[in-house]
Amino acid sequence: MVSIGRYIRNIRRSGVKKWMRDMMYIGDAKYGQCVGQDQFGNKYYENLNPEDELPGRHRWVDFAQHDFNATQVPAEWHSWLHHIRHQPPPQDTVMQNLSPPWKGPWVENLTGTRGAYKPYNTAAAKINPWAPKVAPRNST
């Protein structure tokens, strides 16, 4: 529920600068407790006060980059944001002890950018394009 009282209350709690940034980036005035930060600088917040936030909208991420997308959220934080895990990753003992040896460094999805994966073909072409042969003219 969006109301003038909620906006004024959040301005008082967080300050005008943070309130303006939230309105510009996420389009909503939010205030909550910072529960952690990932390796990319994204901050994760939670507000459990039922009069401040609607159910299901009480966990959110504040992206570090201006140009952001959902693939910039690591899997462990994604599971907390979507209520798959109850505790955030810094406080969850299962997530702290879970580090498989095959897990490499996390990389965001680069589709549509210059860093996107582009396969190359090592097989010979089945159809060769026609290339005209140019013969010099006789000038007499």
Results as ranks from 00 to 15, higher is better:
44 Y>T: 01
80 W>V: 00
94 V>F: 11
140 T>C: 14
88 P>Y: 06
37 Q>D: 06
124 A>W: 14
76 E>N: 09
63 F>A: 01
24 M>S: 11
45 Y>W: 15
12 R>V: 13
18 K>T: 14
101 P>F: 09
103 K>Y: 12
112 G>R: 02
14 S>P: 05
130 W>R: 12
84 I>C: 07
117 Y>E: 05
126 K>A: 08
132 P>V: 10
107 V>E: 09
106 W>L: 01
130 W>M: 15
32 G>Y: 01
17 K>E: 15
21 R>I: 14
48 L>N: 05
130 W>N: 14
30 K>D: 03
81 L>D: 00
49 N>G: 03
27 G>P: 07
32 G>R: 00
128 N>Q: 15
67 D>C: 10
95 M>S: 08
5 G>S: 13
76 E>S: 08
135 A>G: 06
135 A>S: 12
89 P>Y: 01
77 W>F: 02
99 S>F: 10
101 P>K: 02
14 S>I: 11
20 M>P: 00
117 Y>S: 02
123 A>L: 14
72 Q>R: 04
90 P>C: 10
123 A>C: 13
112 G>P: 04
6 R>Y: 04
78 H>K: 02
94 V>D: 07
29 A>I: 07
73 V>Y: 01
130 W>I: 15
52 D>G: 01
73 V>D: 01
100 P>F: 15
130 W>K: 12
62 D>Q: 09
135 A>K: 05
97 N>H: 07
70 A>K: 02
16 V>D: 04
79 S>V: 01
49 N>E: 08
119 P>C: 13
12 R>M: 10
86 H>R: 09
42 N>K: 00
85 R>N: 12
104 G>C: 09
15 G>T: 02
111 T>W: 08
127 I>H: 06
7 Y>R: 06
102 W>M: 05
10 N>M: 11
82 H>P: 03
92 D>A: 02
121 N>F: 10
5 G>F: 11
121 N>C: 13
37 Q>T: 12
70 A>E: 05
34 C>K: 12
106 W>V: 00
87 Q>K: 11
4 I>G: 10
83 H>W: 11
135 A>C: 13
44 Y>P: 03
82 H>I: 05
20 M>E: 10
29 A>D: 08
41 G>C: 06
43 K>L: 08
66 H>R: 14
51 E>V: 10
69 N>C: 04
48 L>F: 03
101 P>S: 06
82 H>A: 04
135 A>Y: 14
75 A>D: 03
57 R>I: 07
50 P>C: 04
74 P>V: 11
105 P>H: 07
8 I>G: 03
22 D>I: 00
69 N>P: 01
51 E>I: 11
85 R>Q: 11
65 Q>G: 08
123 A>G: 13
130 W>F: 15
4 I>A: 13
125 A>V: 14
88 P>C: 09
20 M>Y: 07
53 E>Y: 00
71 T>Q: 06
130 W>H: 15
46 E>L: 03
35 V>M: 06
15 G>A: 04
33 Q>D: 10
77 W>S: 00
58 H>Y: 08
94 V>G: 04
52 D>W: 02
43 K>T: 05
67 D>T: 10
76 E>W: 09
28 D>F: 02
51 E>Y: 10
55 P>N: 02
32 G>W: 01
49 N>T: 04
107 V>K: 05
52 D>Y: 03
30 K>R: 13
138 N>V: 15
23 M>L: 14
134 V>H: 13
73 V>E: 02
4 I>C: 12
124 A>M: 14
